[in-house]
Design a protein around this nucleic acid. Structure first.
Lengths: 203, 203
DNA sequence: AAAAAAGATTGAGTTCGTTCATTTTTGAAG
DNA sequence: CTTCAAAAATGAACGAACTCAATCTTTTTT
């Protein structure tokens, strides 16, 4: 079933993604030209456009892989939440934040977020939006799980409140990547304060 | 004290802003070239760059003027809020949303938001971020005003809660401008539902 | 009022993302 | 094995944002 054509296609996709990911991280998104990526992936510039519609979409493909990992890691945590509301929320949020700079620079996040707003219809922009929705749903699930364990007010709409929490942490993350000088520890501090407030409303 | 040089500078700035605003709205941000703006403003392309650092920053200058108007209009409403929590919040939000498409297209909003994330250091990007903070503060002020009138739980931190409300409405607005097909009425529906939930938490 | 300095304008030139006509490679049919 | 069609790769050409050395305009100095 795996013809030569199919195998080469997958191989090229992988090489382009690898090359782009490595170069973006090493030199920055703007400093890397499509031609550089093509050269590193041993294809031509035109071929990159057979696989990814724009440079921005290629970036979003890379970012999406990262977010996929986070969604998976988050799933484990949501199914076995710590036995305290603030700590449960805090752990999930910390998981998201700490993963974020593992493979991606702030510049890459900025460009990715910008592109997903600017060009929402692009294939990987849609994928990225989906993944965002999955993260949001995960927070909702956590709150529902806490309710089930009697750690959160049962009269709360878990979906509405989960989205509120997600919007808040998302907004703080945007501020974080917008300021190159801001260290991760500051994001944690801000986040812990908000989480405490929000946990107060839940309990 | 207004020398010739100063007057010409103000005049040119105005002409560039006017031309760009008109052309962006009529033809779309991407379709308009700097040269087109320059021609319409009766200057050269290079001159546009003496006044605005990039095309994106020029757009943000235009968007900022719009947001300034909204901040002003909102101020009136916050000082004399309707005598009902949900209605007060709803009026302010409606004010923001209804103003949004008056002078600016969805594409312009998308590009502006994208640029403000992508290039946060640029002069008008900073201005735009400031204005965003002012809107957020306005929502906080409204909640504080409601507390003062006994229309909201006094034990609530107005600042924290205001930011939550602002983040929520901001996020909904982003979804709105990301989908060209979505009518303003749908945004209102979504917003009304969320506002009702949030008003419930406040009372 | 002339000369010098400071400040702005200009548009040709550079760069890089993107497109597309042409060429090459792959897979199927005879 | 040859022929043909479909799919994919290629790189030269294009377009638009942005830069910068040369030029022009305004202000200040003598």
């Amino acid at each position: 079933m795996t013809g030569l054509r199919e195998r080469q296609k997958a191989d090229r996709t992988g090489r382009i993604l690898d090359a782009a990911s490595r170069l973006f991280r090493a030199q920055g998104y703007d400093a890397v030209r499509i031609e550089d990526i093509a050269a590193a992936a041993e294809v031509s510039a035109g071929t990159c456009y057979n696989y990814f519609s724009t440079k921005g979409d290629l970036l979003l493909a890379i970012v999406s892989m990262e977010v996929e990992e986070v969604v998976e890691a988050g799933h484990t945590l949501v199914t076995t939440p710590p036995p305290d509301t603030a700590q449960a929320l805090g752990s999930l949020i910390r998981l998201y934040y700490d993963h974020s700079l593992h493979y991606l620079s702030k510049e890459m996040w900025r460009k990715a977020m910008a592109f997903s707003i600017e060009a929402p219809g692009t294939p990987f922009s849609q994928r990225y939006t989906e993944l965002d929705a999955m993260l949001s749903a995960q927070v909702c699930d956590l709150i529902a799980a806490l309710q089930k364990r009697g750690l959160a007010r049962p009269d709360l709409d878990a979906k509405v409140f989960g989205q509120i929490v997600f919007n808040t942490l998302n907004q703080m993350f945007i501020e974080f990547v917008k300021q190159d000088a801001m260290p991760l520890s500051d994001l944690h501090r801000l986040s812990d304060a908000q989480t405490a407030s929000l946990a107060g409303l839940i309990r």
